[in-house]
Simulated assay, not measured.
Amino acid sequence: MLVGVPKEIKSHEYRVGLSPAAVRELCARGHEVVVETGAGAAIDFSDAQYESAGARLAPNAGAVFTQADMIVKVKEPQPDECRMLKAGQILFTYLHLAPDPVQAGLLRDSGAIAIAYETVTDDRGGLPLLAPMSEVAGRMSIQAGAACLERIRGGRGVLLGGVPGVPPATVTVIGGGVVGTNAARMALGLGARVTVIDRSLPRLKELDALYGPALTTAYSTVDAIDSLVMASDLVVGAVLIPGAAAPKLVTREMVKAMRPGSVLVDVAIDQGGCFETSHATTHDDPSYIVDDVVHYCVANMPGAVARTSTVALNNATIPFVLALADKGVRRALYEDAHLSAGLNVHEGRITHKAVATALDADYTPVEEALGL
């Protein structure tokens, strides 16, 4: 199979779909790889490294899309990229279609086979291709939130960990999954007072056993969210429903009741965000203020630490990339139910139920789409 790697074009997105090491794995299995010139240059993956690994270079994205049987990316394809896709071509990347009907429509029109990293599953009920970036985003959420608490950025002027004689900041994390756990870990490490809210009692028990009295846990109710958000200096939204739009757990009224200069970091913004006042931002202009509350809603947070993120992502994606290349898409999906859970669009049809529901679109089961 010929695998193509275009350069990412989303604002301040420096990650790359395949590292030179991943390219070498594919070439060692007899596959061909074509990489757009400069695709990894921003994170010190040079064209020479890709050529040494066995790849051919292409002068632009158009040349990559024209040649490749499978496109491997990081972020969701932008409209111009969607229009370059061909019928039957495999696209393997993050899609986050639930809040993005425009992208969904373009992918359906292309006739391509779009597999989303974020809905691939594993035998433990996890999301193995989302987890690495969730780890990065969870840890970064505290860095970003701490910076936004600085007065020059509109914050309350509070140091996250405090100093002797001055209490630390109060941090609430909504969601105890991968993002939330990593956010809590970072906030605790910096000395903040941290509460994690989740609706799973078993998960709260796991977090309690892991962190002990250093961490406060709370069962998720409207009342608990309301009271904790109002008392917080920093709130991290770390909610995920695979494939679906994130629920709006923090209302406008709750935001209005927060103290001026408090900070909201919405890591769920890729799925539409879990705060009613959220809208996606970029690294160019990452934050804005509503009702005197600072909002940080960058939709590709891990792109800021692109080298770490690329290597972590490739460690997780390469087994699936190899399976698709070795077996072809139909056999690979048939033999691996976890990979088939990642199929979101197949030749014009939506094949993930949560995505179809969020988009109010017709749903076609994977088995029917593949003719199994």
Rank of each mutant, 00 (worst) to 15 (best):
E253I: 14
V229L: 11
A268G: 13
S227R: 07
A131Q: 10
G38E: 12
G177A: 15
S141K: 11
R349Q: 11
A214V: 14
A354H: 09
R83D: 06
A323L: 07
H338P: 09
G62I: 14
V171G: 05
S232V: 11
V33W: 01
L26G: 07
D109M: 12
A358W: 01
K353T: 13
A104S: 07
S19L: 10
E335I: 06
L130T: 15
E51S: 09
E51N: 02
P99F: 02
T37G: 03
A268Q: 14
G272M: 02
E368D: 04
R139S: 05
E368A: 05
R29Q: 08
A312T: 00
L18A: 06
S278V: 15
D291G: 08
D123Q: 04
I9V: 14
V16F: 00
P167H: 14
G371R: 04
H283P: 12
I43E: 13
V5G: 04
V196W: 03
D223H: 04
E36N: 10
G237L: 07
S262E: 14
P260E: 07
M70F: 01
R153Y: 01
G175C: 11
I269N: 10
G176V: 15
P286T: 15
A42M: 07
H295Y: 09
V366M: 00
A299F: 00
T308A: 05
A238R: 06
A356L: 05
R331W: 01
L339Q: 06
E36H: 09
Y14Q: 05
F65G: 12
C148I: 02
A325I: 03
M84I: 11
A218P: 14
I90N: 06
T66A: 15
M230Q: 11
G191I: 08
V222K: 15
E8A: 07
P6G: 05
R252F: 01
V120L: 09
V355I: 05
K73H: 09
A246M: 05
H283V: 10
L339S: 09
G145Y: 00
V222H: 11
A187C: 07
P101D: 11
L210W: 09
A41L: 10
V194A: 13
D285I: 13
K248G: 12
T251M: 13
L339P: 06
L240N: 10
T119N: 03
V74D: 09
G155W: 00
T119Y: 04
V179K: 10
T216E: 11
L339V: 11
E13A: 04
P202F: 02
T119R: 02
K327L: 06
S11V: 13
V171F: 00
G62E: 15
I174Y: 00
L106T: 01
C82F: 04
T216C: 14
C148H: 05
K248P: 14
S232C: 08
Q67Y: 00
A63F: 05
L107Q: 02
D109Y: 01
L204Q: 08
P77Y: 04
T282H: 12
V178K: 11
I318M: 05
